[in-house]
């Protein structure tokens, strides 16, 4: 198992390197002049030359890549062309915001997936109706679900759940940036509960589609597990259906579900870009849309790199989990 994890970590580093190379190359071939974005269209020729120098654009391309890579490893993504501040500083409050939202969305995906799985394969008209509802929910784009949920929970139900921002109180000075964790660390139930309430709607909007897809795969997996020869063996040994599901079927059905979860996590990261806009969530997503608007390429590259890294790390985690669940992956 340790060897397996080490191997996966090794390939993780390789993938991250190529991701960096890809993002860097995109920046080079993109049809926008970083200097002009930096100094403005009306700047003098001297200012442009000085800016080129400052941004390191006179260096040979491999040197530029080396310094980009070196900076990225240390969490230094250069200077934002738009705000002229270090990108790392700008992201320091936004990264936890997105990670917190993504974490909750992922958690909700699993909760929705597991709890809907049993409803999904229900026979008869009720089952057919439920499948129709799930299917519609899963095919609706996340921004639509986001706007609908704002409409229902904020407008019609008189604001039972907040529909904008991360907190009614603002961040703690010495906080981690993860508001729920901060609330718990400061032993403040009010603050924690408020942060959770703010999280619920955006997390729900980002997780409904993935959750239904997960439910579907889980339901299929469990039903095919239950008709497998080894489930019959368990039955013949006197196990009841509940035990067979818990002890045998869930574990066997979870390999395809985990693979799907890894893919869905990737989609979720990209759907967060939109969801954050709807809920005025000050995370990477809203930062990215701002940066795209003004052609702030270093900022775009930084966000892409971070989101890519999150995606790759998630996938590695899923691979390791798969190996833990299925001995055939680990021991082949």
């Amino acid at each position: 198992m340790l060897v397996f994890v080490a191997k996966r970590l090794g390939s993780l580093v390789v993938v991250l390197f190529f991701l960096t190379l890809l993002v860097f190359t995109l920046g080079k071939v993109a049809d926008s002049d970083p200097v002009r974005t930096y100094v403005g269209v009306n700047a003098s020729a001297e200012a442009v030359t000085a800016a080129r120098e400052e941004l390191g654009l006179d260096d040979p391309v491999p040197v530029q890549f080396a310094s980009f890579l070196g900076g990225a490893v240390h969490g230094d993504f250069g200077i934002s062309l738009a705000s002229k501040r270090p990108i790392a500083d700008e992201l320091s409050s936004r990264l936890p915001a997105t990670l917190e939202l993504a974490g909750w969305a992922l958690m909700l995906t699993v909760v929705i997936g597991v709890s809907l799985a049993s409803l999904y394969s229900r026979p008869g008209r009720v089952g057919a109706f439920l499948r129709f509802v799930f299917f519609s929910a899963a095919s609706a784009p996340s921004f639509l679900i986001a706007m609908l949920s704002v409409l229902v929970f904020y407008k019609w139900l008189g604001g039972v759940l907040p529909a904008a921002g991360r907190s009614s109180y603002g961040p703690y000075e010495d906080g981690t940036g993860f508001y729920v964790i901060d609330g718990i660390l400061h032993a403040s139930p009010t603050y924690t509960w408020d942060a959770i309430q703010h999280l619920l709607l955006p997390a729900l909007a980002a997780s409904v589609g993935a959750g239904v897809a997960l439910a579907r795969v889980l339901a299929d997996g469990i039903s095919s597990s239950l008709s497998s020869p080894w489930a019959r063996t368990a039955r013949a040994l006197g196990e009841n259906e509940g035990t067979i599901v818990r002890r045998h079927a869930l574990r066997n059905a979870s390999s395809p579900a985990l693979s799907l979860l890894a893919v869905q996590a990737g989609f979720m990261v990209s759907s967060l870009v939109v969801v954050e806009q709807v809920f005025s969530w000050n995370g990477l997503g809203s930062y990215l849309s701002g940066a795209i608007g003004v052609g702030d390429f270093p900022a775009i590259a930084a966000v892409c790199l971070i989101l890519g890294a999150v995606y790759v790390v998630l996938n590695t985690l899923v691979d390791v989990a798969l190996a833990a669940v299925d001995p055939r992956v680990r021991l082949s």
């Binding site: 020869p229 019959r232 001995p327």
Partner: peptide, 25 residues
């Protein structure tokens, strides 16, 4: 049946390749 099966009656099936849960030792 649930009291009899697995206590009074058990069985050996045809396909040993798939009659054991692949995820368990």
């Amino acid at each position: 049946w649930s009291e009899v099966r697995g206590r009074e009656v058990t069985s050996v099936f045809q396909d040993p390749m798939r009659s054991l849960d692949p995820t368990m030792t």
